[in-house]
Amino acid sequence: MIMHSILAHSAIISPVLRILAAWMLVLSFALLAQRRLLSLIRLLAWQGVTLAVGTALVGQLTGDPVLWVSAVLTLSIKGILMPYVLHYLLRRLQVRGDVEMTLNVPSTQLLGILLVVFAFSIAAPLDGYLPAATHGMLGIALAAFLLSFLMMITRRKAISQIVGFLAMDNALFFAATSATLGMPLIVELGIALDTLIGLVVIGVFFFQIRDTFDSLDLHYLEHIREDK
């Protein structure tokens, strides 16, 4: 019965879902290229909204009402709450200006292209095990994941690293909903809770770092290793 409705809907929904996937990748690249902290957070919020719409579409596709709940949750947590918290942190910590990069933007982006090729080539053989509507989604999710990872590597400021971390989480979430057409709500709730707690812990950590070093630049942390 579910299979039947998938077939009926997929003609309209799956192209839209594909465009959303493509959009997700665009946002990941934008995160990689963006220098301003405020814009980074805005992009993260957009990712959350994209995820929510994607989940809702998958819900429509499979006819599973739980996914609608999940979509609403995603929108409120990833689309609104987390960006707001980050924004709040930014204001409280009075971090301003550009993100320092360890590698210049063109090189980072060219590296990003290589990562996307790599991700697609890894994920391509797995498409055979997944429903036709989601072909290629796993590759995009993996690519977004790796790009977020790359972003974390190339930034120095703590806030941009947490943005990278949350983007990674988004990518995983995307893999779970879009590539496998939804995951159990309980798992999702668990993950969302984990991320939130992580965010709180890191937020507390930020204040600690700032109080100790008067800066959020992570390279100061290099000084607190044990001297040999």
Binding site: R18, A22, F29, Q109, V116, F120, A124, H135, G136, I140
Partner: peptide, 13 residues
């Protein structure tokens, strides 16, 4: 980059 991703996604999606 966008052009290249376009080419890639043509094959992947």
């Amino acid at each position: 980059l966008f052009g290249v991703i376009g080419l890639l996604s043509h094959f992947m999606l």
